[in-house]
């Protein structure tokens, strides 16, 4: 019993859950629509407010008023967000015109853009990183370029990309690509150039050809470093895709955040933000498994 408790880390999980409950309660408490306090207001003013719909009669207490939740400008509470989640997921794949896609479509759209850009960048990044890591000269030639390109926010490229590519989805893919390229290149190059000389000597001793050397020594030897680069790239791409989609205004979860803001649906904004959090969490735990698969102890 006790071993199961430790094995699945039940204690820490219960604590996480407790913390979540506390946060939700605080959120709920601070956003609940309170009683209307008429002190300092004349009866006429109160009547005017009722006519404007700012306050409504309290259904439980005769002669008293509460703030109208419909007109409330306060932050939406957790219940409202839950309601929004239920509503969105009740029909995730609906499509009512260009601006009203179900959340399922939006997630799929964002994931496709993300996957194409990220996978292409990973492939290019790893290959480029391997070449840079293997050749001191190539490193010295390319390093100034990398240092200049690396700090440029991928979103900064968007006008140029729009001007040249002219297709919204491709621009989004390219932004993801640029966001995830540099960390992978840098980490791969670092991993490859730090492979222990012993292993490279064994490869020379055993007369490995380029291909066999690459797959038997270099790739597995640099794998832990490559995967940590891929994880940094992953976060960087997820960060970049939100403003890209907002600016492009085509489709996607990032675009959805801005749409809900335009609709002044704060619960909708929060829902879309939470979708990003969930997507990141799920994808990162997949990468984590991958990272464990390729790690080794010296």
């Amino acid at each position: 019993m006790k071993s199961i408790f430790y094995k699945y880390k039940i204690g820490s999980k219960l604590m996480s859950l407790g913390l979540l409950l506390v946060l939700l309660l605080v959120w709920h408490g601070s956003t609940t629509v309170g009683k209307f306090d008429p002190t300092g207001k004349t009866d006429d003013e109160v009547m005017l407010m009722e006519m404007n719909g700012e306050i409504i009669p309290d259904p439980y207490n005769d002669g008293q008023y509460i703030n109208n939740p419909e007109k409330s400008t306060t932050f939406p509470g957790p219940l409202k967000v839950v309601e929004k989640i239920k509503q969105e997921f009740s029909n995730p794949f609906h499509r009512k015109g260009t601006n009203d896609h179900g959340i399922g479509w939006l997630i799929l759209y964002t994931l496709t853009v993300f996957a194409i850009g990220y996978l292409a960048a990973s492939l290019v990044g790893v290959l480029l990183g391997v070449f840079i890591g293997l050749s001191r000269t190539l490193f010295e030639v390319l390093n100034p370029f990398l240092q200049v390109l690396k700090p440029i926010s991928p979103v900064a490229w968007m006008p140029l990309l729009l001007y040249t590519v002219q297709d919204g989805k491709s621009v989004a893919v390219l932004v993801v690509f640029l966001a995830s390229l540099w960390p992978t290149v840098a980490n791969t190059a670092f991993g490859v150039s730090n492979i222990r000389n012993d292993y490279l000597r064994v490869a020379r001793l055993l007369q490995f050809g380029w291909f066999r050397r690459f797959f038997t020594v270099i790739l597995p030897g640099a794998a832990p470093s490559i995967v940590s680069g891929l994880r940094i790239s992953f976060v960087s791409a997820l960060v970049a895709i939100v403003p890209a989609e907002m600016l492009l205004g085509e489709l996607g979860v990032g675009y959805n955040i801005w749409m809900e803001w335009n609709n002044l649906d704060i619960a909708g904004v929060m829902f879309a933000v939470l979708v990003f959090g969930a997507m990141g969490f799920i994808l990162d735990s997949l990468l984590d498994r991958f990272a464990r698969g390729v790690s080794f102890v010296e």
Binding site: R196, Y199, R201, V202, L205, P220, V297
Partner: peptide, 15 residues
């Protein structure tokens, strides 16, 4: 391969 080396550090590939 005609001159194999046994290394002090073993040089076994850990993966």
């Amino acid at each position: 391969l005609d001159r194999m080396v046994v290394f002090q550090s073993f040089a076994l590939m850990p993966w």
